[in-house]
Design a protein around this nucleic acid. Structure first.
Lengths: 417, 417
DNA sequence: CTGATTAAATCTAGGTGTTAAATCAACTCC
DNA sequence: GGAGTTGATTTAACACCTAGATTTAATCAG
């Protein structure tokens, strides 16, 4: 569980106050304003205790006390209750998508509202560069809203590589993985320890899965898979509410799907549709009027195929059917082996799946006996990984909140955006 | 987590004493005799507190106090320490394997020592019968060692069907699953509530996986798969230390493996080797001296093939190679998709895999790029499921211990076996 | 405007459980 | 038998929670 997070309290015995404070804080986390009575009911503690704890948390900067009870229209007779709320500006989290070609950093408050976002493209793949680029992108995002590093409570970095419990990636083929993750964990941990924030380095598909589960098409499902499907396929599994990582964090690497009949490679939808479209054009079977023939070769990609199919073009539809067959097989195997209720398609092509998804679902239904998993397209457009990183960072902060010291509660009302 | 277990305490606020007592009890669980000083170090609590808690637990029947410190040879100077130990006879757990043809019940003490075992075969498949047979088999096992129902702390039942969080199985094809699990959960829960024990109904392969992880070939691995491979294939996944169950508990149902090239059906090793041996014999390509030709048809099964192969028979070895290829593909897909470090072969044929496993491993190595999972044969012979049920029951008792009342500490020394 | 009503805050006394420090007990070793 | 060592026991103080009485801040009815 701790995963690279500094273990702050290793006492096994419990401090009652600490535990109760954690309960109140946790209750407040996903709730808006609340009164002492609300917390009393939720925690089973006495009024005196709850109020003492809440005042404590106000003093420590986690809560702010709201003006008065009746303001919110929800008036009830009797003495107005004091109202508290999690101080969403008690600190920020940073979610970084350290992708192959581009590094993005998103800064969010404790409610998950995105306050800033910055990115830089990377040309050269030197290890050094990836680390320093991440540093500067984070600094840039923070700078845009006038915050300093000490506002950070947690930084989570997503990398296109499996990561173990310490955020370290294995070598991988031709060292790709260790090039993508050249020691983010160690680098950030060192800085985090100085500045007092927690860190985590996690596989990008896993973070995407968390994003979908928290905000996207995975909401409400306790078992689902997120398929990242741009140029290459990758998956993040959430089963029984837990992220499934595997020994080296490589669960969700789909290379072995090549053993499934009719699947072959692990190329993504975008890559494959492009290849197929070029093949079709070369085969001479495509109608002369079809955009698949008319589009210039350099521009012929998945987007074109999707758009062309929507206008009823038979050649494009044939390609979609072929893709549906392939995706259905992938979903059947993954969904069948893991018994998930939903499979979310995420990544660049997610917005264009209108025609493809129903076809895939129909085919999937034929392949499976028991109820097949639902298929859904991500609603999170780009930035899934950085969003997932923010989601994960918030989870980490929430789990460790009582052990953390938030910003001094001076600049109370300043929510930059 | 609770999974059919009666939720005894739903207060959110914490009782400090209760939590500390739980810590001490949990510390004692997988430890032999220990002194107060040991527990002090482990829990971080004060001597006074630990001793008070320990005495409390002695009074409640969870601990017994052992004679004196120096007895155990581990003498150190100074005043001899009081020594405590988990009272393994504080109660028993019952693990039931409610298989298709046979119901087995194992009774074990809190240390996991098996005290009794009973079984009955089932001829007819009436739902009623399965429930009552389970009752009588449990009663028989208990009776053999002169215990009464109120000694039971938890009953776990393994069924050859997926189970959801409440222990309920879906319909399944031709109602097989609901015939195998005709409401064990509801039936036992009712009885358990009267007699004060916890219950759980779980898929048999999942229980086998837990058994392997606790006592068998899965020990030491945090991510492994147990393949149950008798007549039909089934798997239990443990990834990152968690059992992976899936929405309906059907993770590990391998029907969809039929989509993998070279795997085809989900028949088990025993079933398939029998079929293949008969095919080979019919094909006329088998040497006349081979036992595969000479064994009477009714006796020609997996056992014969394994034994024959060991004497170097080419026909039998060819069958093993064919099987190795198939198993390697299964392992490659499962191991690759889930990133496990080990795959354990469990079930009836586990003892005969001496020749098959190395061949499978070699082929598996070719199929995977990254380090392939280790392959291991179960060392638990028959009874894996009931053993797993006991393991699971003990987990449940451990997790809920402070909320349970053990037997009155009267018959202290009576450990029947 | 006054007093009744209501709901919540605040105050107070008491109890439970933990700690820290001092003291006592049971050993061994010389 | 006395010094030395380790751990149990005792004691007082403290931390935190609870329950109940009291007070406060509001509405509402007349």
């Amino acid at each position: 569980m701790s995963r690279g997070v500094a273990d702050i309290d290793d006492r096994a015995g419990f401090s009652q106050k600490r535990a109760n404070a954690a309960a109140v804080l946790d209750y407040a986390w996903d709730r808006g304003a609340f009164t002492a009575s609300d917390a009393i009911e939720a925690t089973g503690l006495t009024r005196s205790t709850v109020i003492a704890l809440a005042d404590d948390l106000v003093e420590r900067g986690w809560f702010c006390e709201l003006p008065n009870a009746r303001a919110a229209g929800e008036y009830r007779k009797g003495r107005p209750a004091r109202r508290y709320e999690l101080r969403s500006s008690a600190g920020v989290v940073v979610g970084v998508d350290a992708g192959q070609h581009c590094v993005t950093a998103a800064v969010a408050d404790l409610r998950g509202r995105e306050l800033a976002r910055a990115y830089t493209e990377i040309d050269e793949d030197s290890a050094e560069q990836r680390l320093t680029v991440a540093d500067t992108v984070i600094a840039k995002a923070l700078g845009d809203i006038g915050l300093q590093e000490r506002s950070i409570l947690c930084v989570t970095v997503g990398v296109p590589a499996p990561t173990d419990l310490h955020g370290v990636s294995p070598e991988g083929e031709q060292g790709f993985w260790s090039r993508m993750n050249p020691g983010f964990a160690a680098h950030l941990r060192e800085r985090g320890e100085r500045s007092g924030w927690l860190i985590e380095v996690e596989n990008d598909a896993n973070l995407a899965a968390l994003a979908e589960g928290a905000l996207g098409a995975g909401v409400g499902a306790s078992s689902y898979i997120t398929l990242m499907t741009g140029e290459r396929l990758g998956a993040g599994y959430v089963v029984d509410g837990h992220l499934v990582r595997g020994k080296r964090g490589a669960a969700g690497e789909l290379r072995l799907l090549s053993l499934v009949e009719g699947v072959g490679s692990t190329q993504g939808i975008a890559a494959l549709l492009r290849t197929w479209a070029l093949e079709a054009r070369a085969s001479g079977t495509v109608d002369a009027s079809s955009p698949i023939l008319k589009t210039p070769e350099a521009k012929l990609g998945a987007e074109v195929v999707f758009r062309t199919a929507e206008s009823g073009d038979p050649a494009a539809l044939a390609l979609l059917d072929r893709m549906a067959e392939r995706l259905a097989r992938i979903c059947a195997v993954l969904g069948g082996l893991l018994d998930v209720e939903r499979i979310v398609f995420s990544g660049a092509v997610a917005d264009s799946l209108g025609l493809l998804l129903p076809r895939t679902a129909a085919r999937l239904d034929e392949l499976t006996h028991s109820p097949a998993p639902d298929l859904a397209a991500s609603t999170l457009h780009g930035g899934v990984v950085s969003t997932g990183a923010v989601v994960r960072a918030l989870q980490i902060v929430r789990a460790n909140a009582i052990a953390l010291e938030p910003l001094d509660p001076i600049r109370e009302q300043t929510i930059p955006f």
